[in-house]
Design a binder for these strands. Sequence first.
DNA 1: ACATTATTCAACATGATGTTGATTATAGGT
DNA 2: ACCTATAATCAACATCATGTTGAATAATGT
Lengths: 201, 201
Amino acid sequence: MAEKLDRRKAKTKQHLYQALMSLLAEKSADTITVTEIAERANVNRGTFYLHYKDVADMLQQLKDEVCEHLSERIEKLNLADAMRYADMEEPYPVSVKLFEEIANHAEFLRLMLGPGGDLTYVIRLRELFTARMYHNLQLNMPDKLSIPMDYLVAYLTSANFGVVLHWIETGMSIPPEKMAKIMSSTVNFGPLVTLGIRQAP
Amino acid sequence: MAEKLDRRKAKTKQHLYQALMSLLAEKSADTITVTEIAERANVNRGTFYLHYKDVADMLQQLKDEVCEHLSERIEKLNLADAMRYADMEEPYPVSVKLFEEIANHAEFLRLMLGPGGDLTYVIRLRELFTARMYHNLQLNMPDKLSIPMDYLVAYLTSANFGVVLHWIETGMSIPPEKMAKIMSSTVNFGPLVTLGIRQAP
DNA sequence: ACATTATTCAACATGATGTTGATTATAGGT
DNA sequence: ACCTATAATCAACATCATGTTGAATAATGT
């Protein structure tokens, strides 16, 4: 993401991007050919190779970019703060920022994380949450655990990640603030207490 | 899965299966060619087409089979029962059976649900849990919900699915009974209570 | 206006694909 | 053990996407 002065480069890259997105909406990535992208972008097939090694390479560059943006937000998440906001029944501002960032890359994420998407990428993004979760939990841990630590991290990470996925899949129909509140509540009080089936502590 | 009388058919199918599995351990499914499978299976390339339409078709048949087996177990899960066993601090027997079934298809699932695996298949399996979760929660619901029902289902489903994934990824190093106990505990009391950071209700 | 560079175009060798027809090998039923 | 059905082999084929090349053309920045 350095030089971008030449309008020709920018224009063809944009055409290629739009063509790829439109194709991804129809079929899975591994069935998309360079020929198809070039055709739909109204760009010579040879021109594609002036920008990318192949289809996978093009996708990888897009993935890296989005991943970088999300990573910056995730690294600011703090469990203790999140718990405080949950007790106040307020949305946690750092979470709100994260959800806004996700919304910025909505279509791309929806395609990558949905059917026909890329499982390796899903795992990579989830790993961002997992790493952060470990970092947060190391700070205030009781001596003995009733269940293994790594399983608990898997639970929390997947749960939150799943909620985010659901948000993306349903077209982000609720605002980021509401999302942040849902996350705080479920993590702190557990799903069944949040639901009202069990009593709060 | 009907007729399987001819030993020749069975033998080549088995060779093709082992070749595919060995290739999946090395590279992602969409880069595997019919030529490669046939070579590694010591089977004529033309013979492959006597059994399967293409590589994707072969994988689909395997996926369907495993999915069917798991579905039978998942449909027997019952939230109310699970909650009772959680209160008794006992593993929920229906869960135990499910985990045993998962263990039966360990390598295949590890390949399909791990890096280079198939996101569409992950979503399909998760959908089995989601559908069952909705079925269970419809029965005993409070009048008003503090957060939307579908987000809660997404949370619970993804959380449990994530724990199962972690189990598979780490080589199923703890027994099915212990797994069933972890699941009951986290769902009922919430992750932080289970962890010991918060007090139980 | 000019030098730079992006794009186009045609052509090429390569490799996987899916199919076909003839041939050989092997299974199961009698 | 025999015989028929069918599975597997093999060689050959047309087709298509790939990745690359060299020369011609077009657009860009300064």
